[in-house]
């Protein structure tokens, strides 16, 4: 299986661990990822879009246009990029006016985008029947001690007409993965709640509260680990966990792992390759 890989800006900085673990497990699972050459910012969900909408769409379209030339489906590990790229596809498909304007801008750079690229989330690929079967075959360590609360967040499942990874209210795909790996799944309130990442820099108070609700509901439902598929969520729930603890004067200490790291653990890949040392709340205890 070959895919054009769009890492997103975060994978090269704040989510190095996600990037490392993705590459590590894909190697084992025979999923070939070809990084899109010279990719650029996806246009952002709101930051650039609210400021200069058409520019934001053009930014996304540039990546898609490059991918179109590669003649592959695009896969991205970032939920936000997943949303933005799919949104751009939807807008360009439905609005001929915008499409011609964007293509005019792209023409200067030597591109023309025909809206033919399909955009997948990394989780879509990893949890497809074939790869899941492969995981089943290659599992080395049954993660029986893990009690995993799968966290879907917003852009994996919402809005369903753009991001249709799973049911928007009661998603189950990540939980199926959890069970495949021998861990027990935890059903909890915060599954699809918003972590407030988009407010992290500007309305920290609110973002901390939102993340706190998610972490507490997972913890109180008996989870000893949270699985996520988005580095913005990871940033808020992991790197900011200390802040949450001090702000609300509580103890949470809930490790937050990327689902790729969890698969990596089950496949018996070295911890270092999975970037586990980079997690702020250490998962060592489990």
């Amino acid at each position: 299986m070959k895919y054009a890989f769009y890492p997103g800006c975060s994978n090269h900085s704040m989510a190095k661990d996600y990037d490392d673990s993705t590459k590590a497990i894909c190697k084992v699972l025979d999923v070939e990822l070809f990084e899109i050459p010279d990719w650029n910012c996806c246009g952002s969900i709101d930051a650039v879009y609210s400021f200069k909408p058409l520019y934001s769409i053009a930014l996304a379209a540039r990546n898609l246009a490059i991918t179109e030339k590669m003649q592959m489906d695009l896969v991205t590990p970032c939920s936000a990029c997943y949303f933005t790229l799919n949104r751009t596809n939807k807008i360009l498909r439905e609005d001929a006016g915008t499409k011609s304007k964007v293509n005019e801008a792209l023409a200067n750079l030597g591109f023309n985008y025909n809206v033919s690229v399909r955009v997948w989330h990394l989780a879509d690929i990893i949890l497809s029947d074939i790869v899941l079967q492969k995981i089943k075959e290659k599992v080395k360590n049954q993660l029986t001690k893990f009690k995993i609360a799968s966290y879907y967040g917003c852009y994996l499942v919402r809005p369903p007409e753009i991001c249709n990874f799973d049911d928007p209210e009661h998603p189950t795909h990540l939980d199926e993965l959890v069970e495949t790996l021998g861990a027990s799944k935890i059903d909890y309130y915060g599954k699809t709640r918003c972590c407030g990442a988009s407010l992290g820099m500007t309305n920290e108070e609110l973002a901390l509260k939102m993340s706190k609700d998610i972490l507490l509901s997972a913890k109180n439902s008996g989870a000893n680990c949270l699985a996520t598929a988005c580095h913005l969520c990871h940033l808020n729930l992991d790197a900011r966990q200390k802040d949450i603890e001090s702000r609300f004067n509580i103890k949470i200490n809930l490790p937050v792992l990327y689902f790729t790291q969890i698969i990596g653990l089950a496949l018996g890949i070295e911890l270092k390759q999975l970037g586990l040392q980079r997690n702020w709340v250490s998962p060592k205890e489990i």
Partner: peptide
């Protein structure tokens, strides 16, 4: 303040 979580739109 809207965090663009799309819960309402869904």
């Amino acid at each position: 303040v809207c965090s663009l979580c799309y819960t309402c739109a869904t």
